[in-house]
């Protein structure tokens, strides 16, 4: 069977993680093409709904990458995002999708290696978890998730 290629959505802060991704690119560091980056002005802009909708519309994993603690350009955007990720994790557990499909990461603009490593590790984690059960259910209506996956 072909290796499962998860779809990963990464919400990356313009001031840190997004720049780190750039740096990873210019350093020719390898990271999986599964990761679709969405640039946001601050991780504080990422709401619970953004993460949920990404999953509902077919992503297998979502992560938010913001500035290091205390380094948010808008002071507290990253700590707010951290709390929202925790909230979404709980919600995903409650609806049976699994909270481990979302994660919060912190890095600075210069951490190209960290960006690449995070992208690889998260992709691997989601690959191990398998496809988003909501997507599986949608594509195979009328049958229970466990039996179809």
């Amino acid at each position: 069977m072909e290796e499962f290629q998860p779809v990963i959505v990464a919400f990356c802060c313009h001031y840190c993680a997004y720049t780190a991704a750039d740096m990873a690119g210019s350093k020719r560091l390898h990271y999986p093409a599964n990761v679709k980056i969405i640039r946001v002005p601050c991780t504080g802009k990422v709401s619970a709904l953004h993460m949920m909708e990404a999953l509902r519309k077919g992503a297998d994993g979502v992560y938010v990458a913001g500035c290091l603690e205390g380094d948010c350009h808008f002071r507290t955007g990253n700590t707010r995002a951290t709390k929202r990720v925790a909230y979404v994790k709980k919600l995903l557990d409650e609806i049976g999708i699994g909270g481990e499909r979302v994660e919060m990461y912190a890095m600075s603009a210069g951490m190209g290696e960290v960006f690449a490593r995070t992208a690889s590790e998260f992709t691997e984690k989601i690959r191990r978890l398998g496809p988003n059960p909501a997507r599986v259910g949608r594509d195979n209506p009328g049958c229970a998730t466990a039996a179809c996956s």
Binding site: I95, I97, A134, G137
Partner: peptide, 21 residues
């Protein structure tokens, strides 16, 4: 409105997973 959208998303995902239209 926001909470409606979030709950809607959560319920839809749950029932998608269950294969329940």
């Amino acid at each position: 409105r926001k909470e409606v959208a979030l709950l809607s998303s959560a319920l839809q995902m749950h029932f998608m997973k269950e294969g329940h239209p």
